[in-house]
């Protein structure tokens, strides 16, 4: 069955299937982080230009990027279902997004320095140079907002942001989608909640 036939088979009208067939093939292309793009259909010129400018800039230092990588992989490590945050290029995403949304910049830069200072005072080393037990000890003190000590609140705020950015970066990749089991963004025919799911939640007898 070719693509058009399969679209028809799921109940799409001939017109929708034909139109979709035509537009889908040209649009599938991967975002290449490094390469400047000249123009993109449906994008205003200023958007393309802005993306290129942001990609050409560097915000985080090498040390900061390495620290972000350690933290991101502590937040989302690899398991039997999917890879780690760095496997999904989360640090690269964070580098881009802080340039794109500048209000992240000061809290991220300052937060990274805050954890380094904590580690320097405690262990005589920066966070990323501390050993994994020391890193764990510090992260445990800032990763649980409700039980964190008052003097660790700045670290909690930073870690909340870091956790959010890591989740955004991970679960918006192909790896993240597979992990999550998101199966949409394809042409289909919505026919309501599947019967077994209706039964599972006690809606089997409802008139829907």
């Amino acid at each position: 069955m070719n693509r058009r036939e399969s679209l028809k088979a799921i109940g799409l009208s001939a017109a929708s299937a034909a139109l979709l067939q035509g537009c889908k093939e040209e649009t599938v292309k991967k975002e290449n982080a490094a390469e400047p793009v000249k123009a993109e259909t449906g994008r205003q010129a200023f958007e393309v230009e802005r993306n290129n400018q942001l990609k050409a800039q560097t915000f985080f230092t090498d040390h900061e990027m390495k620290t972000i990588t350690v933290l991101a992989d502590m937040i989302i490590p690899a398991d039997d279902k999917s890879g780690s945050a760095s496997d999904a290029k989360v640090p690269e995403f964070i580098e881009f997004i802080v340039k794109d949304i500048p209000e992240h910049q000061v809290p991220m830069r300052g937060g990274l320095r805050w954890i380094d200072m904590q580690c320097l005072n405690r262990y005589g080393k920066t966070f990323r140079e501390s050993d994994s037990n020391q890193q764990l000890e510090l992260v445990n003190e800032i990763a649980f907002p409700l039980k964190a000590k008052p003097e660790m609140k700045a670290g909690v705020a930073f870690f909340n942001r870091m956790r959010d950015l890591t989740a955004s970066g991970f679960f918006t990749t192909e790896m993240g989608f597979k992990d999550l089991g998101y199966v949409g963004n394809v042409a289909n025919k919505w026919q309501g909640v599947p019967k077994d799911v209706l039964a599972q939640y006690g809606f089997a007898d409802d008139k829907i």
């Binding site: 975002e31 982080a33 259909t41 449906g42 958007e47 970066g169 990749t173 963004n185």
Partner: peptide
């Protein structure tokens, strides 16, 4: 500008096709 959804819509794109993963920066 002129805009024809048939050509200009960003429908069915995946978040990783946006460097900001769909964030509302622009």
């Amino acid at each position: 500008p002129f805009f024809d959804p048939k050509k200009d819509s960003l429908q069915l794109k995946w978040p990783w096709e946006s460097p900001r993963r769909g964030a509302g920066s622009t």
